[in-house]
Nucleic acid binder design. Sequence first.
DNA 1: TCCATATATCATGAATTATTGATATAATGA
DNA 2: TCATTATATCAATAATTCATGATATATGGA
Lengths: 110, 110
Amino acid sequence: MDTTKATTAFAALSQPTRLDVFRLLVQAGKTGLLAGEIGEKLNVRQNTMSANLLVMLNAGLIRKTREGRGIRYFADMPAMADLIGFMLKDCCGGNVDECKPFLEQVACKC
Amino acid sequence: MDTTKATTAFAALSQPTRLDVFRLLVQAGKTGLLAGEIGEKLNVRQNTMSANLLVMLNAGLIRKTREGRGIRYFADMPAMADLIGFMLKDCCGGNVDECKPFLEQVACKC
DNA sequence: TCCATATATCATGAATTATTGATATAATGA
DNA sequence: TCATTATATCAATAATTCATGATATATGGA
């Protein structure tokens, strides 16, 4: 992870449709979603959705596999973890006590 | 946290100077940094830095307090935790086993 | 091979964002 | 009050991004 990759990823998340797509895919887990399903759920036109999925692919936030005529998309969770790690590197001035409340707040609830 | 707030925050992090500023402030912890110190460290002109700091303030990622003639900036860690929580809500389809490796990777190392 | 379905690409105009020079405001000290 | 330091705001141009209509490509089935 470097600044260029990170800013590209954040730019991909800075548009409402794309953020919604990412959150849907995070919630879908390993099952993923077909491109068409995503467009339908979010009520976004086909070519607009395709363009937005491409932005997220290029940003490394999602992956895809062909499935028959369709294409199934997945959130790339390791990439997301890497991004968060980059952003929070050496956080809180290395002070564990200062950091603890933050960690508790960010912990996943699933 | 909602989609609008989140996309605004990600947009603020999608520019190299601003991402560098945020990471510096994360590392500075409660000590924070003066606006001038930030500009000097990152070699960014005064008005450009001021404009970028304003974007981050409006995005809710940083806070400021006046200190004599200077202004001291801090990363808003609770806001960051909130943002990460929003992005990862109901992750991995609610499957804890699927989620575990991700959580281990994202855990803070400080 | 021909058709239907699913997704991607292209070109374009509209809107947004970034940087900069110039200038303004705020706080301090003489 | 005047000068200095620190930061913010303004106006303008340049660059980037967005959604869309039209069209192209890929897969599967008849």
